[in-house]
Amino acid sequence: MHAHAAHHPALQHQFQTMSQQKESAVLGMWAFLLTEVLFFGGLFMAYMLYRTWYHDAFVLASTSITIFWGLLNTVVLIGSSLTMALAVRSAQINQRKATVMWLIATMVLGTVFLGVKVIEYADKFEHHHVPGPEYAFIEPGHEPIFELGPHGRELLERNSAESLNRTTQIFFSLYFTMTGLHALHMIIGIGLMCVITWMAWKGRFSSEYYTPVEMSGLYWHFVDIVWIFLFPLLYLIDRS
């Protein structure tokens, strides 16, 4: 069977060849990820500005977040990137069951990530670290409820509680918007993967046609990359 004479069932009418179709999908996906870079870029812009302006507030607010959960999630998410890459690889070499298995592993890891996020968010709600009318970061005259970093004491002394209660809200506004949108991307990714897994199970993919697996892989890795930046920016400010 050669590529041009016999039409592959997955070849759409507007394309001449399978490779043209695949190249189009790859370019389209990358153009979409380009869009995503600038989408998150607006948030990184805001982060950069306010981290410069409100250094002390950002340090204090960042130390109030538990590194452990962030580190755990980083390991989980990079792990899911590996399983995703292996899913694509299995599809490339015609291993249907392995494809399905790796996809399921990816979804499981993604769900673990989201579960950890729920724990973290619940903690923030409980301690009134969510911006808005209920917000309370430092109560004047009281010790903070979180463990201070090495410069924490010094920072608390040189800023009024009132000003910290205002400006740390900017940190948490960005924290929730950034991690929230990241989590939303993961939910969309898991939804996408449910469909892809089902298609893989039905044997729709082969070494000749596995574009949907590859595309969802690209998307998933991108989401991983966003987290690779979010982790140090949100969790690791000035811990020394």
């Binding site: 869009t35 989408f39 870029g41 911006p131 809200q169 900017i170």
Partner: peptide, 24 residues
């Protein structure tokens, strides 16, 4: 492709500020 996502995220930031009381 390059410009529209930036207004999209700007609208998101405006939206969370207006809807949830965030302060960006």
């Amino acid at each position: 492709v390059l410009g529209t996502p930036v207004i999209a995220i700007t609208i998101v930031m405006l939206g969370v500020e207006r809807a949830f009381g965030f302060g960006i």
